[in-house]
Simulated scan of single mutants.
Amino acid sequence: MEYQLIDGKATASAIKQSIAEEVKTIVAAGGRQPHLAAILVGHDGGSETYVKNKVIACEQCGFKSTLMRYEADVTEEELLACVDKLNKDEDVDGFIVQLPLPKHIDEQKIIMAIDYRKDVDGFHPINVGRMSIGLPCFISATPLGILTLLQHYHIETSGKKCVILGRSNIVGKPMAQLMMQKQYGDATVTVCHSHSKDLKKECQEADIIIAAIGRPDFVTADMVKKGAVVIDVGTTRVPDPTRKSGFRLNGDVKFDEVAPLCSYITPVPGGVGPMTICSLMKNTLAAGKKEYYK
């Protein structure tokens, strides 16, 4: 069976281009550039890369961007003071705190301190709650990116059986909510996780599998039915001596053996990843336009 590769890189690039056009129009009409700020704590390799890519994406979209860096030993008070400052800064439309944070800092406390009207990551309980009942809000970037890809490739989701592997607050849970909702996925949703019985059987019956379990090569050919759509959210750094960096990014899906069974599949890298950053740009534009919250 000939599968179609879902190209997240090309899709994200086209969306960023249309955002840039819109920003030009806004600025030409006397409006202001959307402004995204990011708080980065410590020197985690993955986080450094993500934040760098977010800054580049801001340039491509014609946004203003500000990066605030702290060492790993920053106190919770200092971080909360920084969040408070960004909440009050009228020039900043939206901001993110790059996760994970060091162990001595309570992540949930930091997220709760962010003004939900500037929470372009969509992690604040107000945005999560609004999303779950279908009200306008900032939707968490990775699930929004996946929805955008499904729409972009005109993949039928209504009434389909969708299995989500993983139940994290960042991907699994919001993804399940969105795929279930009438205005988005309109699908029949099953969420599986490390303690699910018959996980393989659930996957075998799925029309759409969204793998966000964080275990390299977890989804194998014997778990996927012919013609399924497979979305791979996994990005685990796996040692690879042939690479200059010494590692490669590996997805949750054993691509080479699963792909021939699929109608559509996302690669890693170049699938969901670029769409996550692109969704953050979409949320920042909406924040700049005060689209959801006046």
Rank of each mutant, 00 (worst) to 15 (best):
E2L: 15
E2C: 14
Q4V: 14
T11L: 00
A12F: 01
A20E: 11
K24V: 13
T25I: 15
V27P: 12
A28T: 12
A29P: 12
G30Y: 13
Q33Y: 15
A38I: 11
L40Q: 10
H43C: 13
E59C: 14
L67R: 13
L67D: 12
L67Q: 14
L67S: 11
R69M: 13
E76R: 08
E76M: 05
L80F: 01
K85M: 14
L86P: 00
N87R: 12
K88V: 06
D89R: 01
D93E: 01
G94F: 02
V97M: 11
Q98D: 05
L99Q: 13
L101S: 07
I105R: 05
D106G: 02
D106H: 07
D106L: 07
M112V: 11
Y116P: 15
R117V: 03
R117E: 12
R117K: 13
K118F: 09
G122V: 04
F123R: 02
G129S: 11
M131G: 01
F138L: 02
P143A: 01
I146K: 01
L150Q: 03
H154F: 11
G159V: 12
K160C: 06
C162D: 01
G166A: 06
N169L: 07
G172M: 09
P174W: 09
A176V: 00
K182F: 07
G185A: 08
A187C: 03
S194K: 01
H195T: 00
L199W: 09
C203I: 00
C203W: 05
A212F: 02
V219T: 04
K226R: 15
G227E: 11
D232V: 04
T236I: 14
F247E: 04
L249M: 11
N250M: 13
K254Q: 09
D256E: 10
P260R: 12
C262F: 06
S263P: 07
Y264R: 10
G270E: 03
G271N: 08
N283R: 05
L285I: 11
